[in-house]
Design a protein around this nucleic acid. Structure first.
Length: 103
DNA sequence: CACCTGACGCGTA
DNA sequence: TTACGCGCCAGGT
């Protein structure tokens, strides 16, 4: 059962992702001290859905892709936001250079 | 309690 | 490279 501390830890890590960089759901969960909680991160993000100042768009899956339906508006918004931060796409995938950052 | 559903991850084929 | 299976976690029926 995640309490507010678990949630806050994840949101803190999310807020610490620098512009121009991205992190995966799994990385965020691990950095928040919750290995294996990748799905929980996604769950929180879907709840935030826009109305937050947090950089939700800097979160992608381990395959280097946006975890939203390719034809959805949300997908296009996220891709546009990432592009505006200088993140390069190779087709649907994001170049590996922007993965893995240090706290 | 039993199932089902997700913005997930990883090993295998 | 794509496709599955299985494990993972939280919430909703």
């Amino acid at each position: 059962m995640p309490n507010t501390a678990h949630r806050d830890a994840i949101l803190f890590v999310l807020a610490s992702i620098p512009g121009g960089r991205v992190a995966t759901y799994g990385q965020i969960a691990r950095l928040a001290g919750q290995p294996g909680g990748a799905r929980y991160v996604g769950h929180l993000l879907s709840a935030l859905s826009g109305k937050s100042v947090l950089p939700w768009h800097r979160v992608i899956n381990a395959a280097g892709r946006i975890s939203l339906p390719k034809e959805s508006d949300a997908y296009l918004r996220q891709k546009a936001l990432l592009s505006s931060e200088g993140i390069q796409f190779i087709g649907e995938k994001i170049s590996l250079r922007v993965f893995q950052w240090r706290i």
